[in-house]
Design a protein around this nucleic acid. Structure first.
Lengths: 236, 236
DNA sequence: CGCGCTGTGTGCGCATTGTCACAGACGGGC
DNA sequence: GCCCGTCTGTGACAATGCGCACACAGCGCG
């Protein structure tokens, strides 16, 4: 794993940071916090590949800050986003590796400046055995991911790209709470598993319909209604 | 849940049957077997809908015998298989429901005559807390499913139907270890998330290439090599 | 045998998506 | 201002997959 470095911040301060997340603040059991203390804290630069296809990281990862994209890749360079990992979340991909022994073929890259805690397998196992709360958290995370990815299957299999794009835009605008979204067509294409050209065309039709306005590297929301009405009734 | 009935077989005999599966034979802890004993044994007729969209079953399900299809549905009636549940496996879909409280929108139907054990939530929780082996089994199952479904996403997103069909056929022929497969085009279509016509056409081209021979309700494997070579190099 | 049900084959039109090939257009640095 | 790399727009075309319509074939059954 290139470009990683052990951060100056101590494991102790990690405990504080983690306590801020609702998921972990529930966990009082000492074996869990010991596991965290035993973990290495890593700062990862934006764009760094955290997990590369077929080369699993053997430790249990925990995101403290920033977001990580988990995605699949095709030979021709196309990609599709599986899900995102936000601060305070657990890398269940690691789990899949740990459990099955099979290095599963997905990739993970840091989307921005990311801090993670890397917990050795032994400590993870112990925390899992001794902390009911941690166990619940892991099961929770895992089952949520499964639900996410199942939903993704449904969308890819049955919904047109236009619908999926409309939903994605709606979601993103909702998150940022702004009417300007700083993103390139290429990035959107990578997220939806398609190509830039196709996406540009779709966006253009959205613009013609008055849903959005396009700028270089940015998309402006003009009419949320027009966008969401697209989702109900794909126009001619 | 219609058409279910409590089977004549006692919970005691279930324990014996479950012990036959490697996954459960590992589990010695009493709380787990108590949970099983507390569960109801149900026999389910082939074709019965076990979990309907949006109507989650609240107990924890365990398949003893038979197979269950877990799939997504679209409005227009198309379906796509997410995965199958075989004897000795755990219904992680139930888990997703139990954990999130969200009734996740997937369906499950019995493919053949199926026996399940339905374990009340409380007993499940207790077994989870007290039995390390059971915990491991659950995590194992969950992470395996996640891997499966992720792989499915990749296939749907990036591979043509012909490839996916070829793989499916290869897999099925491998499983049954026979050169005759008793399945209709419609069923294959349901599995791959497409329509019968499209599938019939694809199968026909496979037949013309000498990979298979088609009969009413059956497919005969002619040349495994021709089929598998399709996967490497899709011909003109 | 004739009837009816289910499963198949197939022709055609159409919508969607992917691919290739460019031409500009914008913006940051110098 | 100019240059260059990135981002975007677009046209033409191929390939894939879908939907509809309908003919017909196999099979069980009375």
């Amino acid at each position: 794993m290139p470009e990683q470095r052990v951060t100056g911040s101590s494991a102790g301060s990690m405990v504080e940071q983690l306590s801020a997340f609702p998921m972990f603040s529930q966990i009082q059991d000492p074996s869990w916090w010991e596991a965290v203390q035993a973990g290495r804290c890593l700062d990862i630069a934006a764009g760094t590949v955290v997990v590369r296809k077929g080369q699993p990281c053997l430790d249990f990862l925990l995101v403290v800050r920033g977001t990580i994209r988990i995605y699949e890749t095709a030979e021709n360079g196309r990609e599709i986003l599986l899900y995102r990992l936000y601060g305070g979340e657990i890398c269940v991909l690691t789990l899949t590796h740990l459990m099955q022994g099979i290095p599963y073929t997905a990739c993970a890259v840091a989307e921005d400046e990311v801090s993670v805690v890397s917990i050795p397998q032994a400590h993870f196992q112990r925390a899992l055995a001794e902390s009911e709360a941690f166990r619940t958290a892991v099961l929770f995370a895992l089952s949520r991911r499964l639900g996410d990815v199942m939903q993704l299957v449904e969308q890819i299999a049955f919904q047109g790209l236009d619908l999926r794009l409309a939903c994605l835009l709606g979601q993103r605008f909702g998150e940022t709470n702004a009417n300007r979204l700083k993103i390139t067509h290429q990035e959107l294409a990578r997220e939806l598993g398609t190509t830039r050209e196709v996406l540009s065309r779709l966006l253009k039709t959205f613009e013609h319909r008055g849903c959005i306005r396009l700028f270089r590297g940015q998309i402006e929301l003009v009419s949320p209604d027009a966008l969401s009405s697209w989702m109900r009734k794909p126009p001619v």
